[in-house]
Amino acid sequence: MEQGVHFITVATRDTDAARAFYVTGLGWQPLLDVPGEILFFQIAPGVTLGLFDAVKFAADMNSTDITGPAGLTLSHNVGSPDEVDRCLAKAAEAGAEIVKAGQQAAFGGYHGHFRDPNGLIWEVAHNPAWSVDPDGRVRLGLVES
């Protein structure tokens, strides 16, 4: 199997709350929006985030156990600590709960976390040791102290 992820699909208790948060609150444009079922957003080149109604997600999986992994976050890297704070403020204005205010991170950068209305946790980070080459290859190192 080739190493790669193209879709990240999350079981979502309330697709209307997700729409209000991501589309109305954050200004994201959906690739596909099927009310009461699923929203798809392109979140990176070739990568899509799906927010799928939890009941329909379980039916699609032929399972009632959709608890999934614990400790999951999606991370959004930005260009500066100020941009981290602006993103966290925008998320809070849109209805997110700030889990961790912007602050220096153990990895040497700056980050904070918010929880969307359905419980999905996002990290917003400035990591000067993270970069993407023109060919799409990610470079990840440690920030020198």
Rank of each mutant, 00 (worst) to 15 (best):
G4D: 08
V5T: 13
F7P: 00
I8F: 05
T9R: 06
V10C: 08
R13G: 12
D14R: 08
D14T: 10
T15N: 05
T15P: 02
A18V: 03
R19I: 01
R19W: 11
R19K: 11
F21E: 08
V23S: 01
V23D: 08
V23C: 13
V23N: 07
G25T: 10
G25Y: 09
L26F: 06
L26I: 09
G27V: 14
W28N: 04
W28K: 07
Q29H: 10
Q29I: 14
P30R: 11
P30N: 11
L31Q: 13
L32S: 13
L32D: 14
D33N: 12
V34N: 05
V34C: 02
G36W: 07
E37F: 07
Q42M: 05
I43Q: 02
A44T: 01
G46S: 06
V47N: 04
T48A: 04
T48G: 02
V55P: 00
V55M: 03
K56L: 15
D60W: 00
D60R: 11
M61D: 00
S63E: 06
T64P: 00
T64V: 10
T64D: 11
I66E: 00
P69L: 15
T73P: 01
T73V: 15
L74W: 03
L74A: 07
L74V: 14
H76W: 12
V78D: 12
V78Q: 12
S80L: 14
E83V: 12
E83H: 09
V84I: 13
V84P: 10
A89M: 09
A91P: 08
A92I: 03
E93C: 04
E93A: 13
A96I: 07
A96Y: 02
E97Y: 00
I98V: 15
Q103E: 15
A105M: 12
A105V: 12
A106I: 14
F107A: 06
F107L: 09
G108W: 10
G112D: 07
H113T: 11
R115W: 01
D116Y: 04
P117Y: 10
G119F: 03
E123M: 13
E123G: 05
E123H: 04
A125D: 10
A125W: 00
H126T: 02
H126I: 01
P128W: 04
W130M: 14
W130E: 03
W130K: 04
S131N: 13
V132I: 15
D133Q: 15
D133N: 14
P134A: 14
G136N: 06
R137D: 03
V138M: 11
V138I: 13
V138C: 02
R139P: 00
G141T: 07
L142Y: 04
V143N: 12
V143G: 05
E144D: 06
S145M: 04
